[in-house]
Design a binder for these strands. Sequence first.
DNA 1: CGAACTGTTGAGAGGCTTCAAGCCTAGTGG
DNA 2: CCACTAGGCTTGAAGCCTCTCAACAGTTCG
Lengths: 239, 239
Amino acid sequence: MELFVHKKRWRHPAINQELSLNEVPQFKHLTENELLHIELNSTQISYKKGIVIYREGTRHSGIYCIAKGIVKIYKIGPNGKPQIIRFAKKGDFIAYQSLLTNELASTSAKTSEDTVVYHIPYQVLLHLLQSNWRFTHEMMKIACIELRQSNTFVTDLAQKSVRERTAEILLFLRDQFGLDMNNALQIKVTRKDLANMVGTVPESLIRVMSEFKSEKLLAYPGRKIVFLNLQKLLTIANS
Amino acid sequence: MELFVHKKRWRHPAINQELSLNEVPQFKHLTENELLHIELNSTQISYKKGIVIYREGTRHSGIYCIAKGIVKIYKIGPNGKPQIIRFAKKGDFIAYQSLLTNELASTSAKTSEDTVVYHIPYQVLLHLLQSNWRFTHEMMKIACIELRQSNTFVTDLAQKSVRERTAEILLFLRDQFGLDMNNALQIKVTRKDLANMVGTVPESLIRVMSEFKSEKLLAYPGRKIVFLNLQKLLTIANS
DNA sequence: CGAACTGTTGAGAGGCTTCAAGCCTAGTGG
DNA sequence: CCACTAGGCTTGAAGCCTCTCAACAGTTCG
């Protein structure tokens, strides 16, 4: 505990603890009855690392809220190659997009580490959306924010170099998952996955990271990624 | 009129006529009172071609629904270069994303041709969202569908070649804007804008289009783009 | 303890961009 | 109404960024 005392802007405390339903930010405006209704009608499911929660092309039966762990959301590309769309973490909703449009799932979801989720059946979600505007507004916000991020990333892919995008993705992961007291990224990502997010091949990503290393912007002891110069990385990312 | 008789799956009839508010698909579930309330509280605005409706970084005062014309939605990239996100047409809503998240506009909007829009003030929209679930659901669907498209395009940019993406974008524009009786694309886009959407430079786009032309997949007399072999283009796009 | 996967570096190839030049089209102003 | 000019379109040549292929070290896990 004491380790965290000096950490300012600590955004992801107690990351190993399970989130309970009433701690989900989007549920804060729910009445006790509404919350109870969810608790009674949703199921908690545990997955080991590397398990597929749902697969592209199937139909969702409900929405998932992550209580613990990290889930990789990805699309299958034209040659069967997966493309990572995002990493969802504790408190995030997944599967809402296709559920709300009543389409088949446009992405797949696989656990990146041991994960616990709440599965909220469609009818329960629908009832909630119809009865509680503030919750509905929060859900709309989630979709719109993800849309903004996606549009930003389209712009980056179209206009930035691999070097710039690498800095960008590293900083994005830092925003999403935070750093520990040693400035190390709080999520484990393989080079292959990192390269995939950047929109390149592992070899190219590694070359850029080697540059960053020799420029003293990064260090990577073991499988950690340590940020040494955020300011410079920001400059590279936004150039 | 008779020209259209033989056209099957004609998806964009009377494209030059203004859409009235009660013809907007998302408004079909509104009560008469709700519709009246919108009509009384929204303003119709006409823009000449090439006018900026709103600019990235500003705050929206309401949502726009396009009654006539085409609006280019774009983001400013890292070097000040615009990146086209989409072309919005008659019946489409724009500016909803930042309005719903209460953020500053993340995109700009400029008319690509003479355009008429309805401006619906935020408070009016908010009232509608709170009172009519079916409308709200439609709005959520819009955001989610755009999100799916954006994610798909991220995957394409990361994994497909310029040739593949060019075929893809041409087919996408065909889906969105349709073809006339000569199989010509029903939207005028400059090579520069096309290249931008594909995520390349005009020179590269033109080379690919020249290939398509010599392969008898496309023709472009004047400034039209005529589709000669949709099947082959589909193969190229999805390869 | 080996198999399979991840991470890393080098060399070579190639797709794409950049730069340059010319033609064409459309819109403007006299 | 026409000349003019700015911007759109097109092609060629050169160079570079990125990918591909290959080899090997390190790591994880059954």
